[in-house]
Simulated scan of single mutants.
Amino acid sequence: MAFENVVYPAFIKQEGGNFGIHFPMLLPETGWDFYLTSGPTKEEAIQNAKKALAYLLAGELYDNEELPSQAPIPANLVTEEMELIFIKTSYSDYAKGIEEHLPGRHWHIYFNRDWESDFQAVAYKNMQGFWDVKVDGDLPIEMEQEKLLQLCPTYPVISTVRRRVEAQEAFDSFVLRIKAIVNINHIASQQKRNNN
């Protein structure tokens, strides 16, 4: 896992007493509104951005993803308060810190990508370099342990995957199957009560 002298487009913008470095193309969901890192001067902000970018890219590779696109920031989206810059970074410049940081890395996974969901999972990397997706805590619904183990013999580990999107899909599928069983049981119970 390494990358050397990779360059990503960013913009620097004065925000309060600091200079924030934004990566809108690298982080399209948050990069326009929130900076990845900042500093009291432009120079310090850029130095901080080199480190933050190296950690972010190393995390992507650790997650079994490809390095993200280095697409430029479209000129028509640049406003007056933005100063376009390019941040160059290398794994080797921050290797020691990255290698200490990555082993504790894990994923939090939410049902249907809903951050407020009661259904949550967590994934940790195993010795083979894949991710074991495990139900985080107890399922927030009643279900007999025997039926749960029939549905998923390795419960609470529900899947082993390579990439985060696969973990999300596996967890969504698992929760939908659980909900279907619970709904069927609920309907059967109602019908039984109605027949009595």
Score class of each variant (00 low, 15 high):
T41P: 15
E44A: 04
L67Q: 12
T89G: 14
E29Y: 06
A54L: 07
A58P: 00
W107C: 11
K88T: 08
E66R: 11
L53M: 12
A45T: 02
E60N: 12
L56E: 14
T89M: 08
K50W: 07
P24T: 01
E80H: 10
D93G: 00
A49Q: 13
K42I: 09
M82A: 14
A49T: 01
A58N: 05
A71C: 09
E80K: 04
G104H: 03
P40V: 15
M25K: 10
E65N: 11
E44D: 14
A71Y: 06
T79D: 05
T89A: 12
I98P: 02
E43R: 13
L36V: 09
W107I: 08
P72W: 03
H106Q: 08
Y91V: 11
L57E: 10
I85S: 05
S38Y: 07
A58Q: 07
L56T: 06
K96N: 00
F34C: 08
P74L: 12
E43W: 15
Y62F: 02
E99L: 14
Y55L: 05
T30V: 15
Q47L: 09
H106A: 10
N48M: 02
I73R: 12
L67T: 04
W32K: 07
S38D: 05
A75H: 10
L36G: 00
I85H: 09
I87D: 14
L53Y: 14
T89H: 12
G59H: 02
T37D: 06
P103I: 05
L57F: 09
E60C: 06
A95D: 06
G59M: 03
G31S: 04
K51Q: 09
N76G: 00
E83K: 10
N48L: 05
Y91L: 07
A49E: 13
T89S: 14
A75C: 06
E43F: 08
E99R: 03
Y91Q: 14
T41D: 09
E83Q: 10
P72K: 08
Y94A: 11
E43L: 13
E80V: 01
E81L: 04
D93C: 01
K96E: 04
L36A: 08
G97R: 00
Y91N: 06
T30M: 10
A52T: 02
P24M: 05
P74I: 13
E44R: 04
Y55P: 03
W107H: 02
